[in-house]
Design a protein around this nucleic acid. Sequence first.
DNA 1: CGTTATTAATTGAACGTTCAATAAAAAAAT
DNA 2: ATTTTTTTATTGAACGTTCAATTAATAACG
Lengths: 212, 212
Amino acid sequence: MPKVGNEPLRRRQLISATMNAIDEAGLADATILRIARRAGVSAGIISHYFGGKDGLLEATMRQILTDLGNAVGERRRALDDDSPRACLGAVIEGNFDDSQVTGPAAKTWLAFWTSSMHKPDLARLQNVNDRRLYANLCFHFSRVMPRAEAQDAARGLAAMIDGLWLRGALTPEGLGAEGARRLAFACLDQLLAQHGGAPASPSAAIGETHDE
Amino acid sequence: MPKVGNEPLRRRQLISATMNAIDEAGLADATILRIARRAGVSAGIISHYFGGKDGLLEATMRQILTDLGNAVGERRRALDDDSPRACLGAVIEGNFDDSQVTGPAAKTWLAFWTSSMHKPDLARLQNVNDRRLYANLCFHFSRVMPRAEAQDAARGLAAMIDGLWLRGALTPEGLGAEGARRLAFACLDQLLAQHGGAPASPSAAIGETHDE
DNA sequence: CGTTATTAATTGAACGTTCAATAAAAAAAT
DNA sequence: ATTTTTTTATTGAACGTTCAATTAATAACG
């Protein structure tokens, strides 16, 4: 029983099904048949819309990177205060957005991370995103400390975010997203206090910096 | 041309070849043929010594975990000072030991990490190791701060170690092992100073083991 | 307004490839 | 001569891709 053609919808369905399949069975067992079945379409359609399995996987990774960028961007835009701490906080919050820490997204993210070490196409995407995050952190830190120290602070905070995020993805029972955010903010305030003189408001570290 | 039988040697050869194959091509393309060729033996021998591919992969992961335990243990034993900072430093140094950050080990480690999310056997190994590290960190932190804060400190340091290690594995060009160690120690000293009263000597963080 | 022709979307099956596992043969060692 | 170790050849299953056939939607036409 054929369905009405709707390219944007089909692409979204298939990308979403890909993440769910990876969440369920891992990238290695995310076959096109499994993905197609999850999306409620047939296997052949994948090649039709994405040129093949690789195309679908790349599109899926692009989607996750876009979601991350949006999550940070939205929180950034919602700030009425453009202090370094507020901006850096928005980056942290964005990285722990539901669209990034939820099962399917997190497992897919990690699977691509691993996979990118041997697939140049994915590595390129990864690098662009990584550099953008780093440059962003660096810029805000360097407003309150010398360049060299700002670079170290950026590297440290980036590592802490990734580490917390990774452990959250791996063991869902220990330290939820709130706990991870709390520790990330604690790290941020330590970094600011260390080199930037007086911190903004360490004790109110966890408070809302955004709404919705 | 067959070779003389030597089980321990064959096992070591094959485990080492597995890590190199994963480093070279990724877990997905680490076929038994590729691994066997790297070890200089034929494919059939893998089933003979490990019962199958899964057995070889599990043995390889066990080896990496053993190496990590040894790297930490050796440094722990080499200490003449058993202050919390010295012990925690040994854990950090052990985690950034060459046996863990070098290409093959790091990529294999990450591949198994990802894979363990969908393979109960590997997940079990991973959890045992993870809990051991966490308990170890917790114990040393709780000598200089309340239990609840020690747990947060342990989680924070563990996340920082993993994050630095992960980024090092992913992008070998930025921040070598020395840089990662430096930032990990900076994080450690911050955590100690934060809750443990006077820090050892923050500026000389990397140097000799001070007394707390 | 109804009929027909054309286009686009989708399916399901077949194909060729690759892999892990197995079995049988060959070589070394005892 | 028997046992252990290793290789080679084979098997069966699973995968991604491809393609002809089918169906729905749209356009052209009278």
